[in-house]
Design a protein around this nucleic acid. Structure first.
Lengths: 202, 202
DNA sequence: GAATTCATGTAACTTGTTACATGATTTA
DNA sequence: TAAATCATGTAACAAGTTACATGAATTC
């Protein structure tokens, strides 16, 4: 259910299109929720059917007309009601493809696994740089450009808290992967000394 | 696709039932993948249809017969093939209900939000204790009881790496929430001084 | 001239959740 | 005597992914 309410919450800041929402997801809130284009358009249609949003069409030439969605009073109350009802236990179901593979790492070719750790480190390092910039520049507002706004948004405090978690996660993952690579290289040396073969003949 | 291959990988260690697999997911690999009972049984049936596993029935009295699944040669090669083909980018799609709510925190009743931070801290602290124990006692093998096994499993090194990530994530989340609570309380004081009303009349 | 941005989606499919159903055995 | 454990699932639904479709305007 969270996606629908996240969309509602963003539209609550100001009316916008599905395209705008997709950009916000990709550029500034992706450390706590991701969404595909098809999902956004589908859920917007449902929010509209439920009377939580309305839209007006802004005609354009040479490209599809804009559908600008705005929140309704019903939508506002549904949103705050949802927000104030936290799930009973605050668990976050994790699904990490990367960790599954590491878990079964003995079946992976050592060169491949080393390469994948290196790639992971590279990607996380880049991610971390972006997050650091965002935190420093106070760019962590949904639109991604705080400098355009002359006054600080009242929700800025909360945006900052979530951005901080994104930063801390990325940092923890980076440090973990660096440790993994180091320990794995030592592990391979000890394995080579005890002249053990890799499983499955790899 | 990961769930099917995670199941295959676990069955590869030793033949087991859907019930056994569910216990492993709940007790020892849940920091990188979660699965419901219905999903496990459904995917086991599909793995069987694909010829990746076979099963034999162990009759029981007073409860449903056990269906003990074992991996086939086809299953083994499908598993190692999958393992060695990492996705192009190692991103982990995150979906945190809790963070969505914090992001829109200005619409939440302060007492409620404080309570939720406290609850989050409590849950994460408990989680962290379990993870610390697991790391210290080398219990982070799929079965959850390393002490039963006289020799260390060859995959132990990799299980330890993933368990470490689980520990680091829980630690980062705990520290974040503690910081949030502290900063939120200060924030509320400054808000009270500037005599601002909470949005939506809450 | 090629790639990216803008802007809308639909259809088919896969994956994950929730509710339901059964019922003896063991532990607290 | 109540709750947890053991052991199997099905059905309906919700949420997420992937592939496809269109096409001008703008930037490199």
């Amino acid at each position: 259910m969270s996606l629908k309410y996240a969309l509602l919450g963003l539209i609550n800041y100001q009316p916008m299109t599905g395209y705008d929402l997709k950009n916000i997801f990709d550029s500034s809130v992706n450390y706590f929720w991701t969404a595909s284009t098809s999902q956004i358009y589908r859920d917007l249609a449902e929010l509209e059917r439920n009377g939580f949003v309305t839209f007006h069409i802004e005609p354009q030439k040479g490209r599809p007309d804009k559908k600008i969605y705005a929140i309704t009073e019903t939508g506002k109350s549904a949103f705050t009601e949802w927000l104030n009802q936290f799930p009973l236990n605050p668990i976050v179901p994790i699904r990490s493809d990367f960790l599954v593979r590491v878990f079964f790492g003995s079946h992976i070719r050592p060169e491949e696994l080393k390469f994948q750790f290196q790639k992971f480190i590279k990607v996380k390092r880049e991610e971390l740089v972006l997050m650091e910039q965002a935190l420093r520049a106070h760019k962590n507002c949904p639109s991604g450009n705080a400098e355009k706004e002359s006054i600080e948004h009242p929700d800025h405090f909360f945006w900052h808290l979530t951005a901080k978690m994104g930063y801390l996660s990325a940092k923890a993952e980076l440090e973990w992967a660096q440790m993994c690579l180091e320990e794995y290289e030592n592990y391979l040396k000890t394995q080579a000394n005890s002249s053990q073969l890799y499983p499955d003949g790899l």
